[in-house]
Amino acid sequence: MWLVDLLVAVGVFLYNLPTIATSAPHLTYGSGDYAALVVLSLVMCAIYILRRRSPLAVLVAMLALACAQLLFGAPIIMADIIVLFAVYTVATRYVWPVSLPAALVVVGWLLVAIVPNLGDDFIDVGQLGVLIVVTLWVWTWGTLVRIRRQYMDGLRERAEQAERQRETNARIAVAEERARIAREIHDIVSHSLSVVVLMSDGAAAKVDSEPERAKSAMLTARDTGRTALTDMRRMLGVLRDDEPGSHAPQPGTAQLDALVEQSYAAGLPVTLTIEGEATSVPDGIGLTIYRLVQEALTNVRKHAGPNLTRADVRLEYRQDEVEVCITDNGQGPVNDRPDSNGHGLVGMRERVAAHGGTFTAGPRESSGFEITAMLPLEGGS
């Protein structure tokens, strides 16, 4: 850009040279006043190159040089055009409380320099008015350019903020997805491994006395392990799209019968009761219900104690919500049960809260433990 400023300065100076003598009647080529005006115009054009670095200082220096012209009998010369460029630059860089007074100072200089010479056939009132209007127009143009630049800068800043917000949201989404995967893996591993361990213990105990029951238990353990592997592949498929089974359907309320049967086969005296008219449950709600029951039954196996005789899973459909309740009559010490700070209960509470539902968990008045969740059907996903 400095090259453009240099060309403008050189052009104005060269255009100014042949017109200096006409700026005042007494000037003649080669006189001292003429030489002084040439030097003043040269300096004025030279400092124009610095307008981008110090626009206000350049304008002040130009006005000082323009006032010095009066000492040599030239109210105004062609080189003074470059002052308008300086006014424009100031208007593009400074707010109007700074740039407008600068423009008015230039107008004041025009009045001081020209008005006393109006009767000398130098310039008339109409031409003076044009110069004032042009000065104010140049200031207005520069001000509009500054406003547009600020507007464009604001748009760029908002676009950058939006991009940063998108990146932040993406990181949050990744963190939430990892937390979801962690909960899914916890549910799958804790439930499946507990079933496999129980069935393996039962098979080991009956392998000599009741080989058929031992075989059935081992087959159940095998099927449970395969199901767990399939579920794990599906969850890991979120990270690797080409993983086999990554697009398999998620479990839901339709798989609760199989889940309860699997737990019953593992030795847990559990029953499933469904009340109300089964409505279409959104996939997200169905998965949450399945994982709640799965985690709750896992906790019953781990913490209910040897006196457990009954565990109930109740699913009640209502008009706009579904209630899930898992209870047992275990007699184990309350301190051995998972509390509200347990990892499993925290995961269940987060699942329910994600759908705008309510979750409660705690010991029953008589005996055992109870987990209840209310999930709204409207807006589910």
Rank of each mutant, 00 (worst) to 15 (best):
V300R: 00
P75G: 01
I371F: 01
R234F: 03
H186Q: 06
G276E: 04
G347P: 02
A203T: 00
N307Q: 15
A179L: 14
P376N: 11
L287Q: 03
M44W: 05
P75F: 06
R213G: 03
L118E: 04
S192V: 02
C67Q: 11
S41W: 05
A266L: 12
H303C: 01
R149Y: 13
R183P: 00
I185M: 11
Y290M: 01
V138E: 02
P306G: 00
Y15I: 05
M235S: 12
A265K: 15
Y34W: 14
G347T: 02
D336Y: 06
I81R: 05
R213H: 02
Y88C: 12
A361V: 04
T135Y: 01
A170D: 11
V189S: 00
E163N: 13
V293Q: 07
L268W: 05
P97R: 09
V39F: 10
S200W: 02
Q161S: 12
A64S: 08
L118G: 01
L272I: 01
T140R: 15
D120A: 13
K302L: 11
L104E: 10
A205H: 12
D339T: 09
E261P: 01
E176L: 13
L236M: 09
T298R: 09
N299T: 04
Y15S: 13
V189N: 02
A64C: 09
A205T: 11
N329V: 04
A64E: 04
H191F: 14
Y15G: 14
V10S: 10
T372H: 10
E261G: 12
S280D: 12
E167C: 08
L193N: 07
A361K: 06
A311M: 05
A254K: 09
C45F: 04
Y151K: 14
A91Q: 03
G202M: 13
A203K: 00
V189D: 00
Y94A: 08
N16W: 06
W96V: 10
P75Y: 05
A173E: 15
L128M: 14
V58P: 02
A86W: 06
D283H: 07
R51W: 04
V58A: 06
R93F: 06
A21D: 03
V313G: 03
A64P: 04
